[in-house]
C-alpha cells in the first residue's frame, strides 16, 4: 500500500513540476508570439532587439516585472486585494491537469499517462474550475475600491456568467457523442469515428466564441476596455501582482485552446499514424507534438482575431450571448441528440 502511494505521489509530483514549467514557459513565449504576430499583421517589426529574433524578450520582461515596485493603494480592502490575483491564476493553471496531451506510454515497465489526473468527470472539473476564475476578476474589481475597477469587475462577472452557459451547452454535444465525461474517452472516440469538428461545426463555433469571451480576449475584452475603463479590474494592480493577471490570461488562452483541441479536433490523435508502424514511444512523441501544434494553431487564431475584429459594445455582447449563442447551442444539442439517437454518426 505504502509503496503504491509513494509511487503515485512521486509520479504526480514529477508530472506537475513538468507541466508547471512547460506551461509557464509557453506563457512567456506566447507574450512574445503575440507581439511579433501583432506586428506582422500590422506590417511592423515588433520586439526583435533582445537576443536573436527577440527570443530573450520574455526573460527581460519577467525580470522587469520582478523588480518593479509593488504599490498597494491605501484605499483597497487588503485581504481580498491580495487574494484576487491568486484566485484567477491558480484555477487557470489547475485546469490543465485533467487534459490529456498524449496517449499512455510504457516507461521501464510502468504505464504512464501523459496527463496529471485522469478524472472520470474531467469535463465537469474543467467547467467547475473555469467558473472559479470569475471570482478573481470580480473580487479584484471590488476590493480595489475604485470606480474603473468596479465597473470592470461587474462587466466581467456578467460576461463570464452569460458565456459559461453557452460554453457548457456547446460541450454537451461532444459528451453525448462520446457517452462519457472523461476526456480520454472523448479523444479515443474521435480517433475511431472521426473528429467532432467534422459533424459538430456549429457546436465548435459556439464553443470557440464562448472561449474567447471566457478568456476576456478581444473582441470580448470589455472588462478592461482601456478606452473607457483605464484597465478595468486590474487598474490598481502593479508589479508582480499585475503580472499574475497578465499571465493568467495567457494560461487561460492555452487551456481554452487545449480544450478546443481535445473536444473537437481529436486531441492528440493523428489520422493515419498507425499506418507508419512507428515504435510506441516514437508514436507517442509524434502525438504529443501534434497536440502542441493544434494548440499552437488555436493560440495563433486568438492573436489573429484580436487584430481582425473590433471590440463589441456591452449591449451587443449581451445580445450575442443570450439571444444568439444560447438558443443556437440549445438547437445544436437537439440536433446532436437526434443524430446520436438515430445512430448516424
Amino acid at each position: 500500500m505504502d509503496r503504491i502511494v509513494a509511487q503515485v505521489l512521486v509520479e504526480s509530483a514529477v508530472k506537475i513540476a513538468l507541466f508547471f514549467f512547460v506551461i509557464l514557459t509557453a506563457v512567456a513565449y506566447m507574450t512574445l508570439v503575440e507581439r511579433r504576430v501583432s506586428a506582422w499583421i500590422q506590417d511592423r517589426l515588433g520586439p526583435n532587439r533582445v537576443g536573436p529574433f527577440g527570443l530573450l524578450q520574455p526573460l527581460a520582461d519577467g525580470i522587469k516585472f520582478l523588480f518593479k515596485e509593488e504599490i498597494t493603494p491605501p484605499h483597497v480592502y487588503r485581504p481580498v486585494y491580495l487574494l484576487a490575483p491568486l484566485l484567477i491564476f491558480v484555477p487557470a493553471l489547475v485546469t490543465f491537469s485533467v487534459i490529456p496531451i498524449g496517449p499512455a506510454v510504457e516507461l521501464h515497465g510502468h504505464r504512464v499517462r501523459l496527463q496529471i489526473a485522469d478524472v472520470d468527470n474531467g469535463v465537469l472539473v474543467i467547467l467547475a474550475l473555469s467558473a472559479m476564475g470569475v471570482y478573481g476578476v470580480a473580487l479584484a474589481g471590488w476590493s480595489s475600491n475604485s470606480k474603473y475597477s468596479l465597473m470592470g469587475g461587474l462587466r466581467s462577472s456578467a460576461q463570464l456568467i452569460s458565456y459559461e452557459l453557452a460554453m457548457g451547452l456547446s460541450i454537451v454535444g461532444v459528451l453525448m457523442a462520446a457517452g462519457s465525461l472523461r476526456l480520454n474517452d472523448i479523444v479515443e472516440r474521435q480517433a475511431e469515428h472521426g473528429w467532432n469538428i467534422l459533424w459538430q461545426l456549429p457546436g465548435f463555433l459556439i464553443f470557440l466564441t464562448a472561449a474567447f469571451a471566457e478568456t476576456n480576449r478581444l473582441p470580448f475584452d470589455l472588462p478592461e476596455a482601456e478606452a473607457e475603463l483605464v484597465a478595468g479590474y486590474h487598474t490598481e494592480y502593479s508589479g508582480l501582482r499585475f503580472s499574475m493577471f497578465y499571465m493568467a490570461e495567457y494560461v487561460n488562452m492555452i487551456t481554452a485552446s487545449a480544450l478546443a483541441t481535445t473536444l473537437y479536433c481529436g486531441g492528440y490523435h493523428v489520422p493515419g499514424l498507425h499506418l507508419l508502424g512507428l515504435p510506441p514511444l516514437a508514436a507517442a512523441l509524434v502525438q504529443v507534438l501534434a497536440f502542441c501544434l493544434k494548440v499552437g494553431f488555436f493560440l495563433f487564431v486568438y492573436v489573429w482575431v484580436r487584430w481582425t475584429l473590433p471590440r463589441f459594445r456591452y449591449d451587443q455582447l449581451m445580445n450575442l450571448g443570450w439571444k444568439m449563442l444560447l438558443p443556437a447551442a440549445l438547437l445544436h444539442v437537439m440536433w446532436v441528440s437526434f443524430i446520436v439517437l438515430m445512430d448516424w454518426s
Binding site: 478524472v119 472520470d120 467547467l127 471590488w142 456568467i161
Partner: peptide, 26 residues
C-alpha cells in the same frame, strides 16, 4: 459521489455565489 461534487462546485460555488458577489458589488 464525484458527479455530485463537481455539480456542487459548478452550480453553488460557481453560479449562485457569483450572483451573490454580483449583488454585493452593486
Amino acid at each position: 459521489a464525484q458527479f455530485l461534487a463537481a455539480i456542487q462546485i459548478i452550480i453553488y460555488a460557481g453560479a449562485i455565489m457569483v450572483l451573490f458577489v454580483f449583488v454585493v458589488m452593486l
